[in-house]
Design a protein around this nucleic acid. Structure first.
Lengths: 107, 107
DNA sequence: CGTTTATATAACATATCCTTTATATAAAGG
DNA sequence: CCTTTATATAAAGGATATGTTATATAAACG
């Protein structure tokens, strides 16, 4: 599995996206992340493992706690890949512009 | 399943990303998309269905052929969501800048 | 130390995903 | 019409994901 596979499939789960949205507000421990969800602690621990494996979050050790936060380079690879699509889409858009411009000229 | 779930999980598969990369070069029929892969036609048809369901591609009817291309608004929702993460990450980066600036001042 | 708190891991059930083969359908071409 | 080409759908198997409960570990607290 490439990093891109891991990153996109990590983001495909709404619970994991919610965890990331929470972490966007700042660091949180596992129990703090469990609290807002109707899921057990092991379930959240697993989601965190997936997010960590995808390089989307990092963890510190602080006594018995393991505070999580967003990984600094979290979405860089994703952004790079999406840039390819964006470019293609804007190229298509430009072609549409050309067509419209041509129609205008003919008129 | 939200659109975001569908979009991210569609992108999580390397075959589907390759299909999108191919479509970034321009429209292609199902058989044209089957050709470069070591997969059967039904397998590709399914991937196309997933991509269509996620709003990432659209299809025309042209006789017996169904040419596919990238959907114009393909990644807009994804981009919107990622913008949230990007913002949080750059905010963290700014905080780091503050710390570094403070250290510099003290020195 | 004994207990509580924080987290991880194992074992298991269920659901979903990906692929294949086999078959259906519908347009195209003699 | 009959055959070929293009695509879709169904059935089935195997792998993977997600959740739960039960348990392990390790730090914190009294």
């Amino acid at each position: 599995m490439t990093n891109l596979d891991a990153a996109f499939s990590a983001l495909a789960d709404p619970t994991r996206r919610a965890i990331l949205a929470r972490l966007a507000l700042g660091e949180a421990t596992v129990m703090e992340l469990v609290e807002p969800f109707e899921l057990t602690q092991p379930a959240i621990s697993r989601h965190l493992k997936v997010l960590e494996g995808a390089g989307l979050i990092v963890r510190r050790v602080e006594g018995a706690k393991r505070p999580c936060r967003l990984a600094p380079s979290a979405i860089s690879e994703i952004d790079q890949w999406l840039a390819m699509l964006r470019k293609a889409l804007s190229a298509n858009y430009d072609r549409l512009d050309d067509v419209l411009a041509a129609m205008k000229t003919e008129k």
